[in-house]
């Protein structure tokens, strides 16, 4: 049984963690406000990052051998400075992730990944051989492709799955403390597939987009009469990446291409055309009727990404609703009126 390695941003290659015999554990924060983290990080900073720091300070996390912090946005950069001093247990490993997708970026990212593997290996007992890494890559791709298939079937209406179930399973999958637990999660979801689920057909088919999604949001939207059929967030569909042709040779190059080439986060600022193409594909493939965009307070990327989404929706004639949230679970009342009014428009 391997030790746990914490991670945050979905650009973190869990394959490397697994290949070294560790278990990747995603940090998703906690419900409620963050008085202790507020001591170390200012008020107007990403609430998700503060929420994660809060769980660490309160010692609510399982024992971690280390944590990989991808310096993917400004909030994560500051978390990387603060975590080892005030919160984290075990080693803190930082990873720089390019904000662009081209051959230079892929090469540089692959070099960073190789370095990360070296640093992680130092924590564990074994050196990372390429063959082990390829095994992990295949194992993860198998699981992701299963999930992608499941979500595509949902979108085609072949199976009835609520967005809230999907989010709950994905959360469980990402934070599963053991490999066995992960298999169980997968088995569980497969079993649920067979059962009859609430039938949302006929409801407005919504894409949820934006910053990391609060786990309760899809459930609430469904409670209020909508149907979340696609969750474009780093704890939703984005985390499942996209299939890429298997490289031969350097597994780190393959991983770099896999992650940088996946559905882009708004942080990929040099890659915005691809993000718009991605939205267009989703809207067509999943017959999206409307979009709900969740802007995490103080997330600069989401603030500007919402602008881009607004232009996109205007062009496509899609209704769009913006919800502001602070990741504390306290915005329910505000959201309800907005979502219900939005759904009344359909």
């Amino acid at each position: 049984m391997g030790a746990l390695i914490g991670w945050f941003c979905h650009y973190t290659p869990v394959e490397i963690i697994t290949a070294l015999g560790f278990i990747p554990y995603r940090l998703l924060g906690r419900e409620g406000n963050t008085p202790r983290a507020d001591t170390y990080l200012v008020g107007n900073l990403c609430p998700y990052v503060k929420s994660c720091l809060e769980t660490a300070i309160r010692q609510e996390l399982p024992p971690l051998a280390g944590t990989v912090i991808a310096r993917s946005c400004n909030a994560m950069i500051h978390l990387a400075s603060t975590w080892p001093r005030y919160g984290g247990q075990g080693a803190t490993l930082v990873l720089d992730v390019p904000r662009r997708l081209d051959e230079e970026a892929v090469l540089y990212y692959s070099q960073n990944l190789r370095r990360l593997a070296g640093e992680l290996a130092w924590l564990g007992e074994r050196q990372l051989e390429d063959s082990l890494l390829w095994q992990a890559i295949d194992a993860w791709e198998e699981q992701r492709s299963y999930w992608r298939g499941l979500l595509a079937a949902r979108a085609r209406g072949e199976i009835c799955l609520s967005g809230s179930d999907v989010m709950a399973w994905l959360d469980g999958w990402q934070t599963c403390a053991t490999a066995a637990g992960r298999d169980k999660g997968q088995a569980g979801s497969a079993a649920i597939e067979q059962q009859s689920r609430p039938d949302f057909r006929g409801r407005p088919r919504l894409m949820l987009a934006g910053s990391i999604l609060p786990a309760e949001l899809p459930a609430l939207i469904e409670e209020w009469g909508g149907w979340s059929v696609f969750e474009d967030a780093c704890n939703g569909r984005r985390f499942l990446l996209a299939e890429v042709a298997r490289e031969t040779g350097d597994p780190y190059l393959h991983l770099a291409r896999l992650y940088l080439g996946g559905p882009p986060c708004p942080r990929m600022v040099a890659d915005q055309t691809r993000r718009q193409q991605y939205w267009a594909g989703v809207v067509d493939d999943y017959q999206i009727d409307g979009v709900i965009y969740h802007v995490m307070k103080f997330c600069d990327a989401a603030i500007y990404d919402f602008r881009a989404m607004k232009d996109f929706c205007d062009r496509r004639g899609l209704p769009l609703l913006r919800l502001d949230g602070d990741y504390t679970g306290g915005a329910r009342g505000q959201w309800q009126t907005r979502v219900e009014a939005f759904l009344e428009m359909f």
Binding site: N74, R99, A105, V269, A270, D300, A301, Y304, R307
Partner: peptide, 23 residues
Amino acid sequence: CDAAPQSLAAAAGYHHVPFYLLD
């Protein structure tokens, strides 16, 4: 900062001119 690239990329899009990011 994160705001500058976002805001300048948006400006480039608005003016339909090329945007070059130094990562």
